[in-house]
Amino acid sequence: MASGTGAGGGPAALRRSERSPRPRPCHRGPYRGAPARGGAGRAMGGFAVLLSVLSVLPLLPQAARGAAVCGRCPGPPRNGSIVSRFCESRRDTESEGRCCRERGSAPGRLLGLDLSNCSLHDVPPELAEATTAIVLDLAENPLTTLPSGSFLGFTHLQLLAVPLALECPGGSDAWQEVTVDGSSWLCQGQRNPCNVSTELAWPCPENSVCASDGPGLTQCLCDSPFHGYKCLREGTFPVLLFSGILGTATISLSLLLWGTQRRKAKTP
Rank of each mutant, 00 (worst) to 15 (best):
S148G: 15
V49W: 04
A128S: 13
C222F: 01
L138N: 02
G38S: 10
N207G: 02
P268C: 09
A139M: 02
P77E: 01
F151N: 03
T236S: 15
L253C: 13
G10W: 04
D92C: 10
A40Y: 05
E18M: 14
G41W: 06
L200K: 04
G39K: 14
T155I: 03
R15H: 10
A34L: 14
G108M: 05
W258M: 09
F237Q: 10
A67Y: 12
T93C: 08
L143V: 01
P23D: 09
L255S: 11
C194S: 00
R101A: 05
A40M: 15
H121I: 06
L246N: 13
S20T: 15
L138K: 05
C118D: 02
L159P: 04
Y31I: 09
A174M: 04
A265M: 06
A161Q: 07
A63E: 13
C231T: 01
L60E: 08
H121D: 10
R191H: 04
L54M: 09
A211W: 00
E94Y: 14
R263D: 01
E167S: 11
Q188G: 06
L136F: 07
A63Q: 14
V83Y: 00
S55M: 07
L120R: 09
A68L: 11
V209T: 12
N207E: 05
E18F: 10
G66E: 04
R32N: 09
C100S: 08
P225V: 09
K266S: 06
S172W: 09
G66A: 11
V209W: 00
A211T: 00
L127K: 15
Y229I: 07
L256T: 14
S81K: 04
V83R: 03
S89R: 13
F242W: 11
D114L: 02
P21R: 12
C204I: 00
A12Y: 11
P238M: 07
P58G: 13
R28A: 15
L120F: 03
R65E: 02
G108N: 07
A133M: 02
R28G: 10
E96S: 11
S55T: 09
R32T: 12
N117L: 08
R24N: 12
L127V: 03
Q188E: 11
L255P: 06
I251G: 07
E126V: 08
T131W: 01
C231V: 01
P30R: 12
D181Y: 06
L159C: 03
T93N: 07
G216F: 02
S252T: 12
T248I: 07
